[in-house]
Amino acid sequence: MDLLTNILAATVVAGTPLLLVALGELICERSGVLNLGQEGMMLMGAVAGFIATLSTGSLAAGIVTAMLTGLAMSMLFAVMAVTLSANQYAAGLALTIFGTGLSAFVGAGFVGQSIEGFEKIAIPLLSDLPVLGRALFTQDLLVYFSWLVFAGVALFLRFSRGGLVLRAVGESPGAANANGLRVLTVRYLAVAFGGAMAGLAGAYLSLAYTPMWTENMTSGRGWIALALVVFASWRPGRLLLGAYLFGAASILHLVLQGLGWRSPTELLAMLPYVVTILMLILLSFDPVRTRLNTPLSLGQPYRPGH
């Protein structure tokens, strides 16, 4: 029983950064913009958040700095991909390569330093539930915050006018423009949200998951999140499920080792990536379904006629 609780709790922790960054990317893609720069924005968020917390001693300062850094990075992307109509694949890749380099450069002097990370907070009553109590309701603040963001995103997309606007822009920017919607503004906002969330997800890694900074500490999570959005067919509910599934996959090797599996670490460490490919296969072999779910204008730059 204790083991199960521990595994579930670790799954939630491992799934949280994925959930955060993927929720941002979901909104971004729903507006028709594919930002492959998640990994770069996460890394910048992680390093900026860590440095801010280290120098001020405040976790809140770290979080805010990380989100602003992610946002600033995403604006670089937006200028290229939204305003200048650059190829979104290339611009996103550029953002990842740039963010990886810049974060390593900025963080070089901070490797090996440590901070007090986020502490677990037990929610009264709920945390007394058997098994789930400790797994779900004895977590750090950011885990709870990720649920709030999830609920916000789900409700926004489903019930708000803003959500309708966002979806309209993503499905048919031309029609949206003809109806007086500001396509580029909506896309800028969506990209900005994605950037802030990626920054936050990065900060989760450097302030809560492992309170320190190491080069490339995201180890592909930004890319996994992109696969996760495809896996979720661009729907928040499935995204939540998917994030924890991927979270479970990423701690599977620890669990197996804990159970006494004597398999080489390096082979077990491949598992999250193998699982990601398997998920992609499962979800993509029906091209018709994939096409129906994909926001219609995804990846297409839009230039309103002046």
Binding site: G40, L76, M80, L93, A94, L95, I97, F98, G99, T100, G101, L102, A104, F105
Partner: peptide, 9 residues
């Protein structure tokens, strides 16, 4: 890496 990223950007 930073120079490379900047260049591509």
């Amino acid at each position: 890496a930073m120079f490379q990223g900047m260049l591509l950007f």
